[in-house]
């Protein structure tokens, strides 16, 4: 893991961009998220970890309403998430999302994958959208693949394309849902490197991951979730060196 990479680790002091207040979610009878309170400041980078089934993916999927919450409030960029479809679409355009299984559109070329959102949601002219797309493809070191289809790329390349696809929408926040979990070991680094670049540019990021090295070097704050609750949150150094809760200690002892 790139422990030697230093990102600016002082906590941002700006305005809150995401506010979650007393949020609950149920799947039927199952109480998957319980009383979540979380404020994310602009440019803040948060890593969420925890055992599987702890609700960490569900939490970030609530932030762009891929999942609905049933109680409490989620406010993103000053807009509260409700059933108002127009608001939801507006927020989704501002919030980038990267999935575990990439979810590229297999029927479109790489560059078409990247320009789809800008052209149809942002109404960017095609030429301009393509230029932006090429810029971000350069950034994730994959510009030479622009005219290929996703099926012709390796997993690591696909995930970098997925990151670039989100960036083309010029999002204010990026959500990462286990971005490296479906990758072969030798491809994890190329994706993490792209994410570290992004962090250094000051992107607000919420990352669900098991890559603890990444958490240590990049995060401002690490959240530990278990049974649908945020059990503990702290700076990476405190979190890893001096965990407070038994459940956190147990979890860390199992993965480190």
């Amino acid at each position: 893991m790139p422990d030697n990479i230093t990102t600016e680790n002082s906590l941002p002091t700006g305005d809150a961009i995401i506010e979650i207040i007393g949020m609950h979610k149920w799947y039927g009878e199952f109480h998957v998220l319980q009383d979540i309170n979380l404020t994310v400041k602009k440019k803040e980078r948060i890593v969420i970890c925890g055992p599987s089934g702890s609700g960490k993916s569900t939490l970030i999927r609530c932030i762009n309403r891929l999942e609905e919450h049933q109680r409490g409030q989620i406010i993103v960029d000053g807009i509260e998430l409700t059933n108002d479809v127009k608001n939801v679409e507006k927020i989704r355009a501002e919030v980038g999302m990267v999935f575990q299984h990439f979810n590229l559109f297999p029927h479109l070329t790489i560059v078409e994958n990247l320009t789809l959102g800008p052209i149809w949601v942002r109404k960017t002219p095609k030429k301009e959208a393509e230029e932006t797309a090429m810029y971000y493809l350069e950034k994730v070191h994959i510009a030479e693949q622009a005219q290929k289809f996703p099926g012709q790329l390796s997993g690591g390349q696909q995930q970098r394309v997925a990151i670039a696809r989100s960036l083309c929408m010029k999002p204010n926040v990026m959500l990462f849902d286990e971005p490296t979990s479906a990758l072969d070991p030798e491809m994890i680094k190329e994706v993490l490197d792209v994410m570290i670049d992004l962090a250094q540019e000051g992107m607000t990021m919420l990352v669900v991951t098991h890559e603890m090295g990444f958490a240590k070097s990049v995060a401002h704050r690490v959240l530990f979730m278990d049974y649908g609750q945020i059990v503990e949150q702290n700076t990476p150094s405190e979190f890893f060196d001096n965990p407070q809760h038994d459940r956190t200690k147990l979890f860390l002892s199992q993965i480190l």
Partner: peptide, 24 residues
């Protein structure tokens, strides 16, 4: 995942269907 990826870009229902789901 295809629906989710399209929706998380901010595409609305008709765009999602026309541009992503139906072609496939």
């Amino acid at each position: 995942g295809q629906y989710e990826a399209a929706e998380s870009l901010g595409l609305n229902y008709y765009q999602t269907m026309r541009l992503v789901i139906l072609p496939q």
